[in-house]
């Protein structure tokens, strides 16, 4: 895993991860919390249940999207980076099998109380040209010695 250093980061830097969520991933995600209810048919696992609330097919839990955004940021920062916070707003539903791209954009680098801190925008894009998820993250990176 590559280590990211504060000195090497500039506003405008961008990175991304493609993601095609499916039912198996959603079930595994839910099983991490409660294996007994992971496969329960509902809007997150069952197309018919999702259609009953007006969705074309099963949708991805919002908490799962937060966790994927977290993964993208923590992969980028490296082992000695620290994720302080991350937040996301859910603008549109994400459907199973959507071709998503999770993107992060450095918006600022600053000394926050002497801590080398990076602000990021994080957002998801789908194949319909929408941004179903938008948010921000705050990361502290090590300095080069």
């Amino acid at each position: 895993m590559e280590q990211r250093y504060f000195e090497d980061v500039e506003p405008g830097d961008e990175f991304s991860l493609p993601w095609r969520p499916d039912r198996a991933q959603v079930v595994a995600f839910r099983a991490a919390g409660n294996p007994e209810t992971a496969e329960r048919p509902d809007r997150f696992t069952d197309d018919e249940a999702a259609k009953q609330i007006g969705m074309p097919k099963a949708i991805v839990p919002g908490a799962f999207a937060l966790c994927m955004a977290t993964r993208v940021v923590t992969d980028w920062m490296g082992a000695y980076g620290t994720l302080h916070s991350i937040d996301v707003d859910f603008r549109r539903p994400m459907l199973h099998e959507d071709a998503l791209n999770i993107l992060a954009l450095v918006t600022d680098t600053l000394e926050d109380g002497g801590r080398p801190t990076v602000k990021l925008d994080v957002y998801f894009e789908n194949e319909r040209g929408e941004r179903p998820v938008q948010g921000t993250a705050l990361v502290e990176l090590p300095r080069k010695l």
């Binding site: 895993m1 991933q25 959603v26 595994a28 995600f29 099983a31 991490a32 919390g33 294996p35 799962f64 966790c67 994927m68 993964r71 923590t74 992969d75 082992a79």
Partner: peptide
Amino acid sequence: RVAQYLVATGETNP
């Protein structure tokens, strides 16, 4: 449970 989470999210972080 951790293993399920790593599978779900595709985490490979050492």
